[in-house]
Design a protein around this nucleic acid. Structure first.
Lengths: 258, 258
DNA sequence: CGATCGTTTGAGTTTGATCAAATGTGGTGG
DNA sequence: CCACCACATTTGATCAAACTCAAACGATCG
């Protein structure tokens, strides 16, 4: 059981280290706490709205979605956690889920009991701040989603989502080279963007016609990064990933070139 | 300078105590840290996108908005902090604002320097958890805003917003009796709901025609609470305010009757 | 008493939704 | 290998929600 966690855990470490380097024993503490590993099949829930969360998780591989369902049956996806993202952190602090978390594609997650997580934070108080930071960045992303659904056209909205996922995956060390796995159906995409399936299909065709992206075989390829960024009006600042450590200059070429 | 803070600070205490009672010295620490008080005129920014936050604030009185502006000039309001809400907490953890915070109406805020806030948390580690909780609840609200903009009609969307504000103000001890101050213009409302001004006007007329609300003189009166809740498909759970302390039964009548 | 800002109304247009059906595709079992 | 099924994508036609443009109306304030 030497290496049960893989890329996802690396992505988590990378994320947490944006704020400051992790001590070796913080790292060990994290790995020890997130000892359990579980696989979830596509379209199965990890936890449903109304439940009392019992675990804190890290997505190691795959793709999750947070979503809510309205009385009329309409679904809105409110977040798409990618490998390295923690989820259910709010379980440490709130007692009831106000939304569900499901697996978009078969996923593997590492999890810690609430108790283990609390002990971890007691032992390494700085981790509390890092988890807090995580929640704050999640807020930033959600704000951008509000903007996306509220004020952008379907075309820009979709382009923006593709840019965001690309940037987030790249920040986690995945999806290099202008293409990344994106196991969403068009119906999922519709629920994430607040559109109908039909309109998603047509918008996608438009993005393809403009030669901005290709979307085949559960994979998204970005053919024209600059064009896609322009189409979506995308600016990566709200992701807070390229944040320079203290005062060093932002390194160019991180997001701009394919 | 015996009582510089007023209702807003009470609302903050009430909020923080949802998680557990505040120690007297935590309370004193908070009041000492948030020693500065400032007034902001309507339509003036407290802090603009791109700035480095220097303070943490609590809204004491008035109404703020967090917003983003798109390249084309469209504005989307992504949150409406009410008295008792902390803001710029992310300044403790992120270096750049990715959105602006402005005053919708003349407001008074208490603020603490980042240093004072950090010292406060060092002295009272439990406050860190409470601030974290605050960020987590903010996330919940933002998720609901995504749902609102993504999947609800203009009519339901507006009804939902009115319900949310009513519930949040009531939780802070304000806006009793089915009416509360709401100093938003229809243009502000449009920016909060992702609609055009004209459509806001017509939707508002519809809500009035259905005798659900009255909106006159910077005040919103809820004429038919049950009807408004039904129209907006509103469920208060995501606000995490009525959360019972440990395991005691939810008290009825908190939200249901006028 | 203008000036300014916010609200309201009307007319016409557009974006995106809905309904219905056809076409593709991947997987399963015979 | 083929037939079949379930599911996803695509297309066409129609409809409705919400937007835009333009102008009038109403408050509020110096």
């Amino acid at each position: 059981m030497g290496q049960p966690h893989g890329l996802g855990m690396d992505a988590l470490f990378r994320r947490l280290q944006l704020y400051g380097p992790l001590e070796p024993d913080e790292r060990r503490g994290l790995e020890a706490a997130f000892a359990g590993v579980r696989t979830v099949e596509a379209n199965h829930d990890l936890i449903a709205e109304g439940a009392r969360p019992a675990f804190v998780g890290v997505l190691l591989d795959g793709l999750l979605c947070r979503y809510k369902v309205l009385p009329g049956g309409e679904r809105q996806i409110v977040a798409l956690p990618t490998p390295g993202d923690m989820f259910d952190l709010q379980g440490l602090v709130l007692r009831r889920m106000d939304h569900s978390i499901g697996a978009v594609a078969r996923s593997t997650v590492a999890f810690a009991t609430l108790q283990a997580a609390h002990e971890l934070m007691d032992a390494h108080p700085r981790l509390t701040a890092l988890f807090w930071r995580d929640a704050v960045v999640e807020c930033s992303i959600l704000r951008e989603w509000v903007v996306n659904c509220g004020r952008r056209t379907a075309y820009a909205r979709m382009a923006h989502l593709f840019c965001e996922l690309s940037a987030r995956l790249a920040a986690g060390g995945l999806g290099k080279g202008g293409a990344y796995p994106l196991p969403l159906t068009q119906a999922d995409l519709a629920d994430a963007l607040g559109l109908s399936v039909v309109h998603v299909n047509r918008t996608l065709q438009q993005l393809r016609a403009e030669r901005l992206v290709a979307f085949k075989g559960r994979r998204l390829s970005i053919l024209d990064r600059a064009g896609l960024i322009a189409a979506g009006g995308f600016r990566a600042d709200y992701l807070h990933v390229a944040e320079p450590m203290e005062g060093d200059p932002p390194k160019a070429g991180k997001e701009g070139d394919s």
